[in-house]
Design a binder for these strands. Structure first.
Lengths: 228, 228
DNA sequence: CCAAAAGTGTTACTGCTACACCCATGT
DNA sequence: ACATGGGTGTAGCAGTAACACTTTTGG
């Protein structure tokens, strides 16, 4: 009943859209390919699915290879199957996006892989269908950020309200009113206010906050909840 | 730089979660497998990706094979890659969900494939990881229905307000107030009220409506828009 | 004392929720 | 005449949007 005549064994690749935040803009990590095909062009980091490996593990492995990081938030974006997306051989690719704290990312690895951070709007054209993958990932990130507290993955453990606001402004490409933003965040009751201040950005200094995952779990929320 | 040692050519399957609505409950179409492996068990409809075929086309082909329908709303849900999900051979599967008008679906094909509609809550256990696929698809459908007018795909062209409300109650498994529902729908300004009445469900008869895709396009909407 | 960023409250408006009665019709 | 489902409006409430001034402190 399955029709086996035409079925084809093919390569399954995994490509990662790695998002970071530098305090100003939402960025993605790209590498300048040092190998064929398309040597010298910019691309997402990627690799092939191994035997005895599930997709999520492959994405984690690839992310670790290029960033040295573990325990990173990742989500599957989708699977892209254009016939000639890879000129070498029929290859289908599943895209994942990852949210990392840009500060944790080593310069050494960046040099090793000719990797570079680009702001989402100013990124160069990418190989294959990677631009499409980035667009989809960005859309998913924006949607997800409306209902889940994933923004904190992009910030250091301790952050100021201003940083948090800048982050959401960057994710949605909007500008928000600082009073409304703060009162909304406070009403969610998912942050712990610390006694420390960050003095780097002003003479007065601004209080640091920390995301409290325990509080988040216990607070009751309705269907469309976060809506920062 | 890509590590080619371990990469593996594998089969890529496509499985379809076919949603329908009978006026009461949200349903999915399942087939009783007439072939090995797992002959006699219930499963989603599926098949393998062909050479020179993109995933979306494969999903469309499979849907057509089992329902005879064309031009159907489909959306990719995700790709499932558990190592032993298929006992025969390493197979990764991309799931799509489809929304069809249950009335358009032929009894003949149902007999041919031993297919049957089950309400989402009362479906039997499925083979492989198909239960997981259904859960994911349902989640996606629920989210999507909050912001996009996809419910109409599940209804006949002309429908009553009551049918529309029943549909959304079934999708989200909630009960809604009929006055609030109607005024919310009206405020969206995406329906055309017809002069016809449907007399099957009451003596008085209830007006029929039609989704107006043109209106939908022109009406301006904000970020979180439909929220029926 | 001044520049620069932090921090804070109130009001108007919009949209959502809750709620109950009359209408039209076929039998 | 009555049973059945269809159709309608309003008032309270909650959450959002708009808006400007005071505080702190290093130089």
């Amino acid at each position: 009943m399955y029709d086996h005549t035409d079925k084809e064994r093919l390569l399954l690749a995994v490509d990662c859209i790695i998002f970071g935040f530098d305090g100003e803009k939402l960025k993605i990590l790209l590498i300048k390919r040092g190998f064929e095909p398309e040597r010298g062009k910019w691309s997402l980091v990627g690799g092939f699915l191994h035997k005895s490996e599930v997709l999520h593990d492959a994405a984690t492995r690839i992310l670790n290879r290029y960033t040295g990081l573990d325990d990173i938030y990742m989500e599957q974006v989708g699977t892209f199957s254009d016939i000639d997306r890879d000129p070498e051989e029929r290859t289908v690719s599943t895209a994942y996006y990852a949210l990392i704290n840009i500060k944790n990312h080593s310069q050494k690895l960046n040099r090793q892989f000719s990797a570079q951070w680009f702001s989402v709007e100013e990124a160069p054209p990418l190989i294959f269908d990677h631009d499409k993958m980035v667009r989809h990932a960005l859309k998913r990130l924006r949607t997800k950020a409306e209902t889940e507290p994933i923004g904190f993955e992009l910030l250091p453990e301790k952050f100021t309200m201003r940083q948090l606001q800048n982050l959401y402004e960057a994710i949605w490409n909007v500008s928000l009113d600082k009073r409304n933003f703060i009162s909304k965040v406070r009403s969610l009751d998912i942050l712990e206010k610390l006694d420390e201040k960050d003095k780097t950005s002003s003479r007065k200094g601004s209080f640091l906050y920390r995301f409290d995952a325990e509080k988040y779990k216990t607070v009751e929320r309705n269907r469309s909840s976060l809506n920062l």
